[in-house]
Design a protein around this nucleic acid. Sequence first.
DNA 1: TTTTTCCTTACGCCATTTGTAAGTGTTTCT
DNA 2: AGAAACACTTACAAATGGCGTAAGGAAAAA
Lengths: 222, 222
Amino acid sequence: MARVTIVEDDPLMREELIDILQKAGYEVAAIADFQDIVAQIATLAPDLVLLDINLPGQSGFEICKSLKSQGTGPILILTSRDKLQDELHGLDLGADDYLTKPCNRDRLLARIQNLLRRFEGRPGLINGGSFFLDPNTFTLYKGSQSIVLSANEGKILLTLVQHRPEIVSKSALRELLWGTDQYIDENALQVNLTRLRKTLRQLNLEDQIETIRGQGYRLRGR
Amino acid sequence: MARVTIVEDDPLMREELIDILQKAGYEVAAIADFQDIVAQIATLAPDLVLLDINLPGQSGFEICKSLKSQGTGPILILTSRDKLQDELHGLDLGADDYLTKPCNRDRLLARIQNLLRRFEGRPGLINGGSFFLDPNTFTLYKGSQSIVLSANEGKILLTLVQHRPEIVSKSALRELLWGTDQYIDENALQVNLTRLRKTLRQLNLEDQIETIRGQGYRLRGR
DNA sequence: TTTTTCCTTACGCCATTTGTAAGTGTTTCT
DNA sequence: AGAAACACTTACAAATGGCGTAAGGAAAAA
């Protein structure tokens, strides 16, 4: 069953949530120490985070923002305040859903289930700024379009994305493609880059890869 | 700006929604003819669908289900009924958010903006029950794994998904692969199905395709 | 201009995909 | 049980696409 992490400072409310979720069959973890919450959640690596807004110290909004910039799973914001402003703010920071407490038990479970389903099995796509890349198959997504890169093109683009916006040396790329830096025709890498750029052009992603003369390549953006 | 399609039968409500969204800068289209709604939406290809539940003829739930099996963008369900059951049902069918009307203007816009941001640039993957399928490249996702199907395997799986859980006749599949039903070696289709099943086994998706003797094939689930 | 670095295009080899063929297994009907 | 219809599997050859190699052109630096 899915793992859910609860971030809620009110002990009573926390226990009740734990109870509800456990009875629903979830593997529940609750944050007890309200310092370094983001790090704790990262370690727990839950499938979903149930996040209260009014917390001692760090605001729930901050946590939400931090988690989302790391590409975590779904976040369900839970707060006692019934202010519309909170909802707007929460959603604005990238929360995936929002509920006011006290909340209906069935509604809570339904929303959790829905969020989990929406994220379940969803590919761990890597955000490349103006596109997404599947690191397994090298399927490249932009808008409603998608194409599959060949193995070499995919490997190159993936490392460029992972190092964005830093420069990746030609030496590193040769190592990536052929396991070694030496005894490789200098031109082989060039050709592969030309091919990659040509493929990117199909999705209107021209001028994404920048050449740094004498040093290597880098991806624009960020 | 993003394109939004409104599906709402009450003219007053519809005009108000159109007004709100247009003033917010969206490119708005509204369904006027309430027949073949799904086909109309598919043609419009909006970035988001605002979907009322109580409609003349086809239920909003049906439309939601159909759209989701085609890999459309986000769907925001809008209904006057304040029944929890509706919400549960709507979310269960894969709607991405839910609001009861009359709804606050700012809240509506915030939810729309949030949905659009969450889906922006994200691939329109089709939910196949226990997997996801990219209809363009035929990249198949299950959990953290993914593989790219060959053209024939992809076409077959895609139509099976789109018709799930109904039976797809062999004749229809032959038409799909070769454009015609006649003069095709009966065996050719079999071979392609064997290959597809073998590929699916790589992702532990055995026994997904069921053979209905004398009629065709169908995908399990739903 | 000369030199260095990078880009582009074309060619041939190799792997993957696909239709064809042939044989085996399974269900249904008499 | 036997036969016929239907479905599945494996193997092989042609077509397709990816890849390294080669050679020449373009652009930047000296």
